[in-house]
Every structure is written in C-alpha cells, then in structure tokens.
Computed example of a mutant assay.
Amino acid sequence: MLLRWNSLVSLGDSFTEGMDDPGPGDTYVGWADRLASMIAQQAPDFRYANFAIRGKMLQEIIDEQVPLAISLKPDLVTFCGGGNDIMVPNSDPDALAEVYEVAVADLRASGSDVVIFTGFDTRSTPLLRSLRGKIAIYNSHLWSIAERYHCRMVDLWSMHVLHDRRAWSEDRLHLSPEGHQRVALKTYEVLGLSDAHAWNEPWPALEQADWVTQRKADLKWAREHVVPWIGRTLRGESMGDGMAPKRPELLPLARATDENCVNN
C-alpha cells in the first residue's frame, strides 16, 4: 500500500495525550501514539509530534497548539477538543463549534489533511448522561464541519464497543489501554489503512455486578473523581497547568518493535 502521509501532528487534551494508558515513567501512550506506531510500521521514517495536554479547553488548544501545527506543515493532523468545555455548566455547543470551525479552516488552508472526532455518547456514565444533548448538538456541527472542509471523521459516539466499562479507566472519564487501542484501530480504519474492523471485536463475556455493588461503585467514583474535577473547575485550575507536551517536536518514529505499543 502506498502511504499517503509521512508526518502526523496530534492536537487536543487528555484524550489525545493518552490518559489513562500508562507508558514509560510518568508518561502516557494513548491512541495517537498507538496510531503513529501502526503507521510507522509501513514507513520507518514517519514523523510524529503530539502537543496534547490534559485539561486544555478548546480555545487553549487553538491558541497554543494549532499555530505550532500549522508552522510544521505536517501531512496529517488529528484535532480533538471541546470535551472539557462541554462539561462546564452553561457552555454553548453552538458557540464552541464556531470556534472549532475557524481552527479547522486554518489547518486545512495550511495544506494538512485533518481528522476530527465526535464526542463520546455518555449514556452509560452516571452524572454525565445529562450532557448527551449538548454533546449531540456539538457532534452535529462537527459532522457539518468535516463535510465542508473535507476532513475525515472518527465517530466516537457510534462506537458501541466503548460502552463496555473495560474500555474506561477507574475515573470513567479517560479510556483504558484497551479503549485507546480500539480508538487507534478505528482511526487507522478511517484513514483507509485497514478494513479489518478490528476495533469492533466483541468483548469477552463479563459477569455483571448486582445493583447495590454498582451504586456503591458509582458513589465512590463521584467522591474520588467527579467532586475533585468540579472543585478544580470552580477554582479555574487544570490538571495540565504548567505541563509541556509529551512529544513537542516532529521527529521520526522508528518502526515499532514493542508489541505492547501496538497490540495491548
């Protein structure tokens, strides 16, 4: 297969940084790194940068990351943002989409192909179900933007395989390593590099917890993860304050030899 892209820059927040998919030291791997490793198996000189930082709001991604991507002129850009904004009370998905579109227009005008992502369907996540309407509105705008600017779309909303709790880490806000692998495989397919549908392979059977156990787990999750997140939001703090991108330069990514990077 003739590879169309020789360089990739990934932009976004914790989703694209790779939380909670542990890597070497204190770093994370994530779907974007996994995707880059898969592509590099076809092109050993493939170059990759990842500017994503956890906690970033859409405007921060646009102000801090998009200009860097444009300056590097990569063949391919993945751009995902707005999820943290949607979670803020009184946020406006219509206004967010207008901001998002300007960034996509700039990226496309620079000559890069662009991959964008819908928001997840939160129907399986307690306390986040109320956001489904806003996410759906935002997603409808993203589909229109993708069509207007000829972007490829990874439809996370329709990935029913991600409704399994094994796709998510303990905080239920970030994907597990297997969840990240599923998204990497889906993106790989969207790029036309595979038609195996490996991302949609059924999960092994899992015994369901009883109602009381599930409710206890929900309360524990809210206490340990949701309440601290709300506190940070009210204080104007972010998990990514003071952090630098994990892969800030567009450098060659050697052919993957560690099976854990690609297949876990």
Rank of each mutant, 00 (worst) to 15 (best):
V227N: 09
H225V: 11
L250K: 08
V183M: 05
A198M: 00
R152C: 09
W199C: 01
G240M: 12
D164S: 00
V190H: 05
K220F: 14
A209G: 14
R182D: 01
V212D: 15
V161K: 06
A196I: 01
G242T: 03
S169D: 12
T233P: 00
Y188I: 06
Y149R: 15
K216N: 15
K186W: 05
E237Q: 07
V212C: 05
H174M: 11
L173M: 09
Q208C: 09
R172S: 03
I230E: 03
D195W: 12
K186R: 13
R166V: 00
L162K: 02
V190G: 03
W199V: 00
A217L: 09
R172C: 04
E189S: 09
V226Y: 11
A256M: 13
C151S: 15
M239N: 05
P228C: 12
L234Q: 14
A244Q: 11
R255Q: 14
K246P: 00
L191H: 09
L162I: 01
P252N: 06
V212N: 14
E249V: 07
L253N: 04
A198I: 00
D164F: 00
K216T: 11
A167W: 02
W157T: 07
S176K: 12
G240D: 09
E201C: 00
M153D: 10
R165H: 03
L234G: 07
S169H: 06
S176I: 06
H174D: 13
S169V: 02
Q214S: 15
L253P: 01
K246I: 02
R235D: 05
W168G: 04
L250V: 13
R232S: 08
A244W: 07
Q181T: 07
